[in-house]
Design a protein around this nucleic acid. Sequence first.
DNA 1: CATAGGATCGCCT
DNA 2: GGCGATCCTATGT
Length: 204
Amino acid sequence: MKYSILPSPFYLRDNVVDIARELLGKVLVTLEEGCITSGIITETEAYAGTTDKASHAWGGRKTDRTSIMYREGGLAYVYLCYGIHSLFNVVTNHEGIPHAVLIRAIYPLDGINRMISRTGKGKISIKSGTGPGNAARLLGIHYSHSGLSLLSKETSNAFNIWIEDRSMTIDPGLIIEGPRVGVEYAGNDALRPYRFRLPPSFRP
DNA sequence: CATAGGATCGCCT
DNA sequence: GGCGATCCTATGT
């Protein structure tokens, strides 16, 4: 039971907000050239598809970039933000329903040395994985990885991503809930309490 | 084809 | 807390 990969049914559910909440405490893992890096997910945001103005899929918008979100849950949706940062999302729900969860922060776990080389800094601290751009960078996730399956155990891929349940229990009372970051343009939808995080004092 | 802008970060004051 | 970096994507002509 320990270290089990989150299976397809986890991602195929209708309620993306529940999924965002439940992803807290799960472990996001990447495998590159035989090297594992991972971190505990400590902050997420739900993006609720065509009816959510803050979502890239709002109003049914569908482009080459966002078409990943319309596919069956269990894929990575990664896009470039501000020309610099790759932001990693988990696609959820069934094909045709463009739900996604943005991973906004991780607590660094495995492969610290590799993370250090990826950041180009001298060391990694507890806060190094705070912020969606930082979290993706620590794990080596790049926007070219958009569309990769989170369910595949193929080791032939140059890059693999999956999420593990390591049986970590999160006290629901610890979860801080609030409006999403950087979506002021979304009008009323900017107020939706779709951001979930563990307190800064969180330790595994 | 041209252009504006973004689900951010880190450095500067 | 203010701002520049940096470039793909979406949109409009």
